[in-house]
């Protein structure tokens, strides 16, 4: 990984950027706006894999029903951060954490909290599409509901169509519902995975580089989908693709070496970042 320049050089012809030493704490401007409901209220959140500290004192408020993008170079802790939002680290031995992480006011790591219940409200879509290979398209969508005890056929039928419509996949698969999920194309599989997450009716959807294995057309479809999801869901998306963050997010958080460097409106991050490290990263000088 490249090291950061002490002071960011100003590209020729670019608007002058304040060159200053990085502030000790992340600049989070006035985000979120007072009136917005906060989905994740995270304070001094640190995490370790064994001896190695992966996240350092992250403090951030992620607004509900907004798309928040998390960007940063490989190894900066962005995936680690995302996975701590629905307790996916629980099964990784040797992880340890400090600080508080509240989701709509509820402490996710409080004593006695059931991680399974957390994940029912905070769903996740992964980098590589992973429909269950033994199941049909319909079974893939409904597996979360079924295994959580839903037996009512009319509810299942309704939720199947609703989830697939929401994932913009219904028209393509409505006649193939009994075909294996793995028979679909890569982009369709990823939308199937999104439908599968939506079927358990979460209020928050975490996406870990959901388009990095897809071609540009499939990527565009997923990005359109994210735009519609924002009306009902809080979306947090980790992406390596800065254009994607710029295109489809309301807020952007820049992570570097386990720290939150800057968090602001996406437009501000990409046009006039306050921090020289952010400026260096979004202008492509490292990372």
């Amino acid at each position: 990984m490249s090291t950061l320049p002490e002071t960011a050089r100003i590209p020729a012809g670019a608007a002058p950027v304040r060159v200053a030493a990085a502030p000790a704490t992340a600049s989070t401007a006035d985000v979120p706006v007072e009136a917005e409901e906060v989905a994740f209220d995270i304070r001094n959140f640190s995490m370790w894999y064994g001896q190695r500290q992966a996240l350092q004192e992250i403090t951030i408020k992620i607004s509900a029903r907004k798309v928040t993008a998390i960007i940063g170079p490989s190894g900066c802790g962005k995936s680690t951060f995302l996975r701590s939002l629905n307790r996916m680290h629980d099964l990784t031995p040797g992880t340890r954490l400090e600080g508080t992480l509240r989701h709509f006011g509820n402490d996710l790591y409080g004593p006695g909290i059931d991680a399974t219940a957390v994940r029912r409200r905070v769903g996740m879509v992964f980098q590589k599409s992973n429909p269950f290979p033994t199941m049909s398209i319909a079974d893939n969508v409904l597996v979360g509901l079924r295994l959580n005890g839903m037996r009512d056929r009319s509810v299942l039928q309704e939720r199947l169509e609703q989830s697939l419509r929401m994932a913009a996949l219904w028209d393509e698969v409505k006649d193939l519902l009994n075909r294996p999920g793995t028979s679909l194309s890569g982009g369709q599989q990823q939308r199937l995975c999104i439908a599968r997450s939506l079927a358990v009716q979460p209020d928050t959807l975490l996406m870990d580089e959901p388009c990095s294995a897809l071609d540009p057309i499939a990527t565009a479809k997923i990005e359109d989908l994210i735009q519609t999801l924002r009306e009902k869901y809080t979306v947090v998306i980790v992406t390596h693709n800065m254009q994607q963050a710029a295109r489809c997010s309301d807020r952007t958080a820049f992570f570097y070496m386990g720290r939150l460097i800057e968090f602001d409106n996406t437009r501000k991050i990409f046009t006039n970042p306050s921090n020289p490290q952010t400026e260096a990263y979004v202008s492509g000088r490292f990372g």
């Binding site: 629905n86 996916m88 099964l91 399974t116 219940a117 957390v118 994940r119 029912r120 409200r121 769903g123 996740m124 992964f126 590589k128 992973n130 269950f132 290979p133 597996v143 979360g144 295994l147 959580n148 995975c193 599968r196 997450s197 358990v200 979460p202």
Partner: peptide
Amino acid sequence: PQSYREAALALGIAR
């Protein structure tokens, strides 16, 4: 693959 386990856990299915 581990990804199936993670995908299922992320749906709020008990381990």
